[in-house]
């Protein structure tokens, strides 16, 4: 009874926050409401017993997207003469997407079949990890995760086409020292999440998002001068997730008895997954951080 009440309140709160974020007249309020929506959404995923999704939603949906929206707002102030966009086109788009989503919700069978999770449990022993979600993401459906990394890279490359310079203010000493205190904790937590992903909720995306938030906090306080697309090492690490994934796939094809692309040999699966996830974490962290903070202002004009 108590949990039912909690769920009803949570659903009502989610709908209210979503509506308020969309209908809010001021962008600052809309962004704040959207962040609150992300936190509540993470709670909803936790209630649906999807802790992997809850972690990712809390880190990306509430944390990084919020920072992204706020930095976008800070840049938006520069061009106040920007024409107001027309409302009907996004409305049509949102209505179409909502209709599609509603349609797909009704396609879900009312009684969830256990066939897929039974098959995952059956093959968990040969996956190299003991957490079913990680087994699906990094072994059984590794192709999907590879393409997700590609999507993230494409997003960064797309965002880089827009000149985006974040006006960095000299950090206040309090926020600088707090960022220095916070970032080692975030580093530790993200390494913990990465390592834990083999056996429990966690993994590359959650760890990467946490690491990215640490990078963003430091960068916004004018630390980490190397964090820029101009830096060769940063560019290499942004690609590292995809490269490690593809190399692992190609290398395992060379082993005897391996015929299928992106299927790991049973004996090495755990190590390969950890390797791929480590590089994916670094790549995700740097990609997300670069998406949020963009380029430093003092970048040389000829580069």
């Amino acid at each position: 009874m108590g949990l039912l009440l909690f769920d009803v309140v949570l659903c009502a709160l989610l709908l209210t926050l979503a509506g308020a974020a969309m209908l809010s007249r001021q962008l600052v309020h809309a962004v704040t409401l959207f962040i609150a929506f992300g936190v509540m959404m993470a709670l909803a995923w936790a209630r649906l017993q999807a802790p992997d999704l809850a972690l990712a939603e809390a880190a990306i949906g509430a944390g990084l997207t919020g920072a992204l929206c706020f930095t976008a707002l800070a840049r938006y102030a520069g061009d106040a003469g920007y024409p107001k966009p027309k409302l009907w086109l996004p409305l049509v788009f949102v209505a179409a997407v909502s209709a599609l989503l509603l349609y797909s919700v009704f396609q879900i069978p009312a009684q969830p079949t256990t066939e897929l999770s039974e098959r995952v449990a059956e093959h968990l022993a040969v996956s190299g990890v003991s957490h079913p979600v990680t087994a699906v993401l990094l072994n059984f459906r590794a192709w999907d995760t590879l393409l997700e990394l590609l999507v993230l890279l494409l997003a960064l490359l797309g965002a880089r086409q827009v000149p985006s310079q974040l006006p960095l203010h000299a950090g206040w000493s309090l926020s600088v020292s707090w960022s220095r205190l916070l970032s080692p904790m975030l580093l530790l937590l993200s390494a913990y999440l990465l390592w834990r992903g083999a056996a429990a909720p966690g993994g590359a995306f959650q760890a990467g998002a946490l690491l990215a938030s640490g990078l963003v906090i430091l960068r916004l306080n004018q630390q980490l001068a190397w964090l820029s697309w101009q830096n060769f090492a940063v560019r290499t690490l942004v690609l590292a997730g995809l490269i490690a994934f593809v190399m692992a796939g190609l290398a395992s094809l060379l082993l005897p008895g391996q015929l299928v692309w992106l299927s790991w040999p049973v004996a090495l699966a755990g190590g390969i997954i950890l390797l791929v996830e480590t590089f994916a974490t670094l790549a995700i962290a740097l990609t997300l951080a670069l998406l949020v903070v963009g380029e430093p202002e003092q970048e040389p004009a000829d580069a």
């Binding site: 001021q26 600052v28 800070a74 102030a77 206040w172 309090l174």
Partner: peptide, 25 residues
């Protein structure tokens, strides 16, 4: 920390008002 930062931000804005980040704010 965030309390101090927000308070400092609004204090500096009061002392020396700049244009709001969002038009119509």
């Amino acid at each position: 920390v965030s309390c101090q930062l927000l308070a400092r931000f609004s204090h500096e804005q009061q002392a020396n008002p700049v244009e709001p980040a969002d038009p119509g704010q």
